[in-house]
Every structure is written in C-alpha cells, then in structure tokens.
C-alpha cells in the first residue's frame, strides 16, 4: 500500500516537472547551431545533405559507436543461438 502511494506521488511529480519544462522551454529555444549548420555545412564538408554532413564529419565519433552497436548485437545473437559443440 505504501509502495503504491509513493509510486503515484512520484508519477504526479514527474508529470508536473515535465509539463512545466515543456511549456517553459518554448521561449528559450536557441537557433545558433541551426543557423551555423544551415550556412556552413556545404562549404565545410562538401555535402548537400546536411544530415550526412553532420553524422559523417562533425559527429563522426558518435557515428562510429553507432556502427559498433550493431556488431555487438550480432555477436550476442550468434553467441546465444549456436549449439554447444559448434564453434563459429
């Protein structure tokens, strides 16, 4: 009973905080990085598609780890699906 009451109070608090943040953040949106990418991406990276320019040049560090997520999931699936006497 006490656990349920605490859970409901926590949920109400989370809803209150998130709605507050979402309503107030409209005034504080900053467009500096958007303007930078719109004006400079083609001259910096040679890419007309700004998304490709960001994920292969400005943020290549994140993109490498995004590619490594797939290799980790593949090795996990192969490890779980192989039979005992079979070595892949």
């Amino acid at each position: 009973m006490i656990k349920k009451v605490i859970l409901i109070v926590m949920l109400i608090a989370i809803i209150f905080i998130f709605s507050n943040v979402a309503l107030k953040s409209v005034e504080n949106i900053d467009s500096d990085s958007k303007d930078y990418y719109l004006t400079n991406t083609y001259n910096d990276t040679g890419s007309k598609n700004i998304v490709t320019g960001i994920y292969l040049d400005y943020r290549l560090f994140d993109s490498i780890f995004e590619a490594s997520i797939l290799i980790i999931s593949v090795s996990g699936i192969i490890y779980m699906s192989k039979k005992d006497d079979e070595v892949l």
Binding site: Y42, N43, T45, G46, S47, T52, G53, L56, D57, L60
Partner: peptide, 14 residues
C-alpha cells in the same frame, strides 16, 4: 579543397 573533392570522403565512408 573544392566541394566535389571533399565529398569523396563521404562517399567512401557511406
């Protein structure tokens, strides 16, 4: 370098 030459890197990595 020129823009078309810089896009070579993007093509290889893609």
């Amino acid at each position: 370098k020129s823009n078309s030459f810089k896009s070579l890197f993007l093509i290889i990595l893609n």
